[in-house]
Design a protein around this nucleic acid. Structure first.
Length: 563
RNA sequence: GGCCCGUUGGUCAAGCGGUUAAGACACUAGCCUCUCACGCUGGGAACAUGGGUUCGAUUCCCGUACGGGUCACCA
């Protein structure tokens, strides 16, 4: 067969050559060892936790090595495209520390535009480029047109992906497909001319030369050495609309754009043989590959499942609503990504996580379960290391969007809020009371009269009159200028007066001798002032609240007890 | 079902032929303490399984089981 003629028949308008493209997109001049990585999403939705994962690796690897991180939009499937998704992707990625040097970026007007010399970066606008290489493959007899329609294919295959595929006869199916494939390869130039004349659409298929009995040796930077069967499937290169499939676009783009490291989820491993074959056909140097293990979740039966977009914690945009600060999420991602990250963090509590020497060798080969309690712990640590101002800003930012009423309370007196948030902050052993802004809001609510309520009741064993006595005595002796010690001395004096132990050691030695202890006395006051049996240091709380608010609450409790 | 990847405590994981098998989270006991939180000291809890190789296997090889992924004109 005259492949040159076939190529002209199929792509009469393509006049550029691969050489011209190679010249247009020359090799990048980058320092030794610099890595070029990319994030290549299809704009079909939000950023997924499982997507942030490899992207963080790409970002670290590129920027740590003085390389380039770029964004390429893989919008080759118009049917699935969601308007505005690409813009959203860029924005949420930015909040999680992923800044692109090149590629599709958000312009001043909020619209996607290109930056960089290796564009365009939207695959839908790169049709002409793919066709140049498609023509080359046809000319070399490594790709051929297939006029079988999608409908015909579906009928033949009988495998409806939407339905339960449990009961199909895989062996028969495989044989049938093999036969089909061979049949597709049998055509003449005349057939093609006739179809073309009739205006029939076609897809371009690769002419696979692999033998699945033979294995290709391959080294994945994460998974290590492996052997995969050669590809013998004539997969589609160009869809009938002339747009490439992922496989073809991947090979052409990553080559032309100079990607050195392809970082993607391990679900791509099964199609790796196709990609290797394609790079070989095209005469491209294969990039290094890193296939990253999946993030899992536990299903109802206790089995691990790939974290999918419906799952709790999957959508990165949800984390803001849940009150997590992006830094905490990044920290958590890093702990999952590099097993020595936590150790480094303990030794370098104040450094930016981007100073951590990210190491491919420290990446996990197996998938891990998404763990909210670990995220929470990480988040508590992150927040505990913030300054009061940072905490306030984070909280306010969250509240402004998700709890405007609370935001208004905060804004009415920022200094008050900052004082609250300062409790136990700073020093070697800061408190870790909250891991999210939601938790912080609930934690500090009692400071605000608007939200104040008595949550914990007094134990029944204590008589109301005893409590009343304590409260009245307390207010009677209260001096807002007292030091913490002076304050507590007075509390202990009240305990002694009513026959409660002020010395805890004495109380523990002989509890029967007392009606209670200073613990109980404090609790009487604490519940009245905070509404809760558990709260941060009472003296500090009162100092922040001020005498007026403290007294009004105690007095309210007093009248309550009488009634 | 074919192919590919994986399997160390409940979770994340160190380990690279000889270890009392780290550490973190969670759980838990106690200490500290006016409660809580922090912190400190402890505790329970693991190498999926059967064969090899070896003086010796969690570590190397093969099988089995289990889990995951994938088998599109989706990425």
């Amino acid at each position: 067969m005259d492949f040159n003629y076939l190529a002209e028949l199929l792509f009469p308008d393509v006049t550029d050559t691969p050489e011209m493209l190679e010249a247009k997109y020359p090799q990048r001049s980058l320092p030794e060892g610099a890595k070029v990585t990319r994030f290549a999403p299809s704009p079909t939705g939000f950023v997924h936790f499982g997507g942030l994962f490899p992207t963080t690796v790409a970002e670290r690897l590129a920027h740590q090595s003085g390389g380039v991180l770029y964004l390429r939009i893989e919008d080759t499937d118009a049917k699935r495209e969601v308007p505005g998704a690409a813009e959203g992707l860029i924005k949420t990625l930015a909040t999680y520390g992923i800044a692109f040097d090149e590629g599709a970026i958000l312009g001043e007007d909020g619209k996607i535009c290109d930056r960089g010399a290796y564009g365009p970066y939207k695959q839908s606008t790169r049709g002409a480029i793919y066709h140049v290489f498609a023509k080359k493959l046809v000319r070399e007899g490594r790709a051929y047109p297939c006029f079988t329609t999608e409908e015909e294919l579906e009928e033949l295959q009988q495998v409806n992906k939407k339905e339960e595929i449990k009961n199909i006869d895989w062996q028969a199916e495989a044989e049938k497909r093999k036969a089909e494939m061979l049949a597709r390869r049998e055509f003449t130039i005349e057939d093609v001319e006739a179809h073309l004349k009739a205006g029939d659409p076609f897809v371009l298929r690769i002419l696979a030369d692999g033998d699945p009995e033979k294995k290709v040796k391959f080294t994945d930077l994460v998974k290590g050495n492996m052997e995969i069967p050669e590809n013998d499937e004539d997969f589609v290169l160009l869809k009938s609309d002339g747009i490439p499939t992922y496989h073809f676009a991947h090979a052409v783009d990553d080559h032309l754009m100079g990607t050195t490291h392809v970082i993607r989820g391990e679900e791509w491993l099964p199609s790796l043989a196709k990609h290797l074959q394609l790079f070989r056909y095209l005469g491209f140097k294969t990039p290094k590959y890193m296939h990253i293990a999946q993030i899992m979740r536990l299903d109802e039966n206790g089995n691990k499942k790939k974290l999918s977009k419906r799952d709790m914690g999957a959508n990165m945009d949800d984390y803001t609503g849940m009150g997590y600060c992006p830094r905490a999420v990044c920290e958590y991602v890093m702990t999952l990504l590099n097993s020595n990250y936590e150790e480094w963090r303990m030794q370098n509590p104040d450094k930016d996580y981007k100073e951590f020497p990210f190491n491919i060798k420290k990446m996990s080969v197996s998938g891990c379960l998404f763990d909210f309690s670990k995220l929470n712990d990480v988040s508590k640590n992150v927040i505990s290391r913030m300054t009061a101002d940072e905490v306030y800003d984070g909280l306010y930012g969250w509240a402004a969007e998700f709890d405007p009423e609370f935001a208004a309370e905060l804004a009415a007196d920022p200094d008050y809020a900052k004082a609250i948030v300062s409790i136990g902050r700073g020093g070697k052993k800061p408190r870790k009371d909250y891991g999210t802004w939601v938790e912080l809001r609930d934690y500090m609510k009692f400071f605000y009269d608007k939200y104040f309520e008595i949550v914990d009741a007094y134990p029944e064993k204590f008589d109301g009159s005893v409590i009343s006595t304590v409260l009245t005595d307390f207010t009677a002796g209260y001096n807002h200028a007292d030091t913490s010690d002076e304050w507590f001395t007075k509390v202990k004096a009240i305990a002694d007066k009513i026959g409660f132990a002020s010395d805890m050691k004495a109380y523990k030695a002989n509890p029967e001798a007392f009606g209670g202890s200073v613990v109980d006395v404090s609790m009487f006051i604490r519940v009245a002032v905070t509404g809760k049996a558990n709260a941060p240091d009472l003296y500090t709380v009162m100092q922040i609240m001020g005498q007026e608010r403290t007294f009004s609450r105690i007095n309210a409790m007093l009248t309550n007890l009488k009634g």
